[in-house]
C-alpha cells in the first residue's frame, strides 16, 4: 500500500484501492462539477481519467470552478485538469480531450471507459452523452446544478433516466450557480462512482435532489422503463 492511500483504509479495503487504480473513467466537462469530480477521483486513486472539455477559462468561471485560476485565463480547461492531476499524482494516467461533446465526438469520448461522469452544463449535451453511453454499454453518473440546487443519479445503459429528467420542451431558467453546489454534486457523484468501480451495491433509477437554500434533501425513485 502506497502511503498516499493509507488513509483510504479501512473505509476501502486494500484490494478495493488496487481495483480503483485499474479503472478508467471519463469526466465530461471540466468546469464547475467536472473540476471537483477530477479532483476527488484523482485523490482517491482512480488510475485513468479522461478529462473532456472544449472550453477555456474565463472570468465568469471563478465563482465556482475549482480548476480556474487567474494565470489560466484563456487556457483550455481539459489541459488544466491534466496538469492538476499530475501535480496530485503523476502516476495517474490522464488523457485530456480539448473538444466539445457532440454527436460526432461522443462515441469516441466515452469509448474504453468503465464509467462516465457528467460535468456538463446543458441539457442538449446530456442527451447526446446519455445516448452515447447507452450505445457503448457504459454506466453514466448524472449530475447537474442550478442556483442552490444539485441533483445526482446513476443512469444505466438504455434506462431512459435523462429522458425523464429532461422531457422535450423543458428548459431551466436559473443560470446562477453558487460555489457549494458543484462541490456537493461532485462529491455525491464521486462516491457513487467509487462504489460502482469497486463493485459495491448502488441504487439505480434514483435521483438524489439537494436544495441547499431550504436544507431539503430528497431521494426520488423513478419507475424507469415503465412508461405509463
Amino acid at each position: 500500500m502506497e502511503r498516499r492511500y493509507e488513509r483510504n483504509i479501512p473505509a476501502l479495503s486494500d484490494q478495493e484501492c488496487r481495483l480503483l487504480r485499474s479503472k478508467r473513467v471519463a469526466v465530461i466537462g471540466c468546469g464547475g462539477i467536472g473540476g471537483y469530480l477530477i479532483e476527488l477521483l484523482a485523490r482517491i486513486g482512480v488510475g485513468y481519467i479522461r478529462t473532456v472539455d472544449g472550453d477555456v477559462f474565463e472570468e465568469s468561471n471563478f465563482n465556482r470552478q475549482l480548476l480556474s485560476e487567474q494565470p489560466l485565463m484563456g487556457r483550455p480547461k481539459a489541459k488544466a485538469a491534466e496538469a492538476r492531476v499530475q501535480r496530485i499524482n503523476p502516476r495517474i494516467e490522464v488523457e485530456p480531450v480539448s473538444a466539445y461533446l457532440d454527436k460526432n465526438t461522443a462515441a469516441e469520448i466515452v469509448s474504453g471507459c468503465d464509467l462516465v461522469l457528467d460535468g456538463l452544463d446543458n441539457i442538449a449535451a446530456r442527451r447526446i452523452l446519455a445516448a452515447a453511453c447507452s450505445e457503448a454499454g457504459v454506466p453514466y453518473i448524472h449530475g447537474a446544478i442550478s442556483g442552490w440546487v444539485a441533483q445526482v443519479g446513476i443512469s444505466m445503459p438504455g434506462d431512459g433516466l435523462i429522458d425523464i429528467l429532461y422531457p422535450q420542451g423543458v428548459s431551466f431558467r436559473d443560470r446562477s450557480v453558487l460555489s457549494f453546489a458543484p462541490s456537493l454534486c461532485a462529491s455525491v457523484q464521486a462516491a457513487l462512482a467509487v462504489k460502482m468501480l469497486i463493485g459495491r451495491p448502488v441504487e439505480t433509477g434514483t435521483i438524489y435532489y439537494f436544495d441547499l437554500l431550504n436544507q431539503e434533501f430528497e431521494t426520488i425513485r423513478l419507475d424507469l422503463g415503465k412508461k405509463e
Binding site: 462539477i33 460535468g119 446543458n122 441539457i123 442550478s146 423543458v170 428548459s171 431551466f172 443560470r175 430528497e218
Partner: peptide, 23 residues
C-alpha cells in the same frame, strides 16, 4: 413518477421539481 394526464384522487400528494441543468 407520473405524467401530466395522470388521474388524481382525493388524498393524493403531487410533488413538482423544476429542471436542474447547469454544471
Amino acid at each position: 413518477h407520473k405524467t401530466l394526464d395522470e388521474k388524481l384522487e382525493d388524498g393524493d400528494v403531487v410533488a413538482l421539481f423544476p429542471p436542474v441543468g447547469g454544471g
